[in-house]
Simulated assay, not measured.
Amino acid sequence: MSSTASTASTTAVPAAPRAARTATGTDTLRLRWGRRLQHGGWFVTPFFVLYGLFVLVPIVRGLYLSFTDANISGDHTSFIGLDNYREALQDDLVWQSLWHSVKFTLWVVPLIVVLALLMALIAHHTVHFKWLWRFCFFAPFLLPSAVVANLWYWLFQPVNGLVNHTLGLDTPWLTQKSTALLASVIATLWWTVGFSFLLYLAALQNIPQHLYEAAELDGANAFQRMIHITVPNLRNITGLVVALQILASLQVYDQVVIMFQFGSGPESSTRTFVQYMIEQGFTSYRVGYASAISMILFIIVAAVALARMWLLRTREEATR
């Protein structure tokens, strides 16, 4: 009896400290979250509420609709499983519009990286009127997409357009299949390069000046300083610019649609993935099918974003 009591007492002794530690840990966690809410948590609460209402709820709603045959009226909706996704994968217009978006991205991203870097170098190294260079390079980015699209619509007119008049051409930019998408690329470059220019300019200003001075003392010329100092120090910002431009270009819609008068261009050569999705939802009234297409685009964009995060983390671990 005594041995049983002693065994029970020995097993019961650690339970009290364990319970005390658990209670202490719970109280510590509660105090920690209380401090976070006290020191700023309530300030971000409106953001989380709006983010949930206007981002998370529509995503969940769109995911649900992608498994239904919902129409724009919302009547007689029934669950059809993966039928919309099967149809999308077999739809030639889905792949055609996706290829147009990918082609647009392949043109825009490299050109924006090169042009933005050149513009940042000019604005950074120029001696006089730096503010004017920066204003001129960044100002187009402040314009609405409708203004930009209509501006370039008139610039690309075959007879009275400034582009043909200046270059001495007679090219039907907006009515010829081989140049239609290129015209939208040129307009997008002029409009959006200012944002990437600003990122590059900020990164150039953060490169230590003593690196250039030391390289110059060692006899390095301007090109060598560019290759061995400027470009390596801009590697992270270049990765950010590439990722942001890929995400934006894959979702291109406004300027392309407005430039071609809300059509799909000559021989449907400018119909983008987002445009086809909107056509299915608001022209063909197939909300369920349009939701499935939007989910496919969401997966593609999320894959690009996750790939960017993985590459950045891998690079950081390699430099440690």
Rank of each mutant, 00 (worst) to 15 (best):
L250S: 13
W95A: 09
G34K: 09
I246T: 14
P232H: 06
T126C: 06
I112L: 13
N71G: 07
V102D: 04
Q205S: 10
S196Q: 10
F135W: 13
D91C: 01
T272A: 09
F79E: 11
I299Q: 13
D91A: 01
V252E: 03
T24W: 12
T7E: 05
N233W: 10
A123W: 02
V94M: 06
L89I: 03
L201F: 13
A243S: 13
A5S: 04
S268N: 09
Y64A: 07
H125L: 09
R21E: 07
V193G: 03
G194D: 01
S268H: 07
R36G: 10
K130S: 04
V127T: 12
I112Q: 14
R315Y: 04
V252N: 11
A187D: 01
M277F: 00
G239D: 09
N233G: 11
G81M: 06
Y200L: 12
M259D: 06
P17Y: 01
P158K: 10
I299G: 15
P14C: 00
T126K: 07
D83E: 14
I227K: 15
V185N: 04
R286E: 14
A302G: 14
E213Y: 05
P266H: 03
I186K: 11
T26Q: 02
A149V: 00
L182K: 09
L118M: 11
T314F: 03
Y51D: 11
A149L: 02
T10M: 08
A290L: 05
M295S: 08
Q157E: 15
Q224K: 10
T230E: 15
T171Q: 09
P140W: 07
F43K: 14
A139P: 04
Q224L: 13
I112K: 12
W191A: 00
P110S: 12
S284Q: 15
A116E: 08
D83S: 05
T126V: 08
Q255P: 03
L240K: 06
E87Q: 11
G62E: 02
S249G: 11
L53V: 15
S73A: 12
A15D: 00
F282S: 05
V49T: 06
M309G: 08
A220V: 01
V55Q: 11
A302V: 15
I229C: 12
R286N: 14
F79A: 08
L306P: 06
L306F: 14
E87K: 12
R315P: 00
V60A: 14
F223S: 12
N84M: 06
A215M: 15
K130N: 05
W42L: 03
N164K: 10
V287L: 14
V301D: 14
L89H: 01
V108D: 08
A303I: 04
F104V: 00
T10Q: 11
F67C: 02
Q157R: 14
A149E: 06
F262Y: 14
A290N: 08
W152M: 06
A123H: 02
S264G: 12
A70L: 09
M295K: 01
Y276I: 03
Q245H: 13
T45D: 03
K103A: 05
P208L: 03
V287W: 02
T272P: 09
L211D: 07
L53T: 13
L198C: 11
L162F: 07
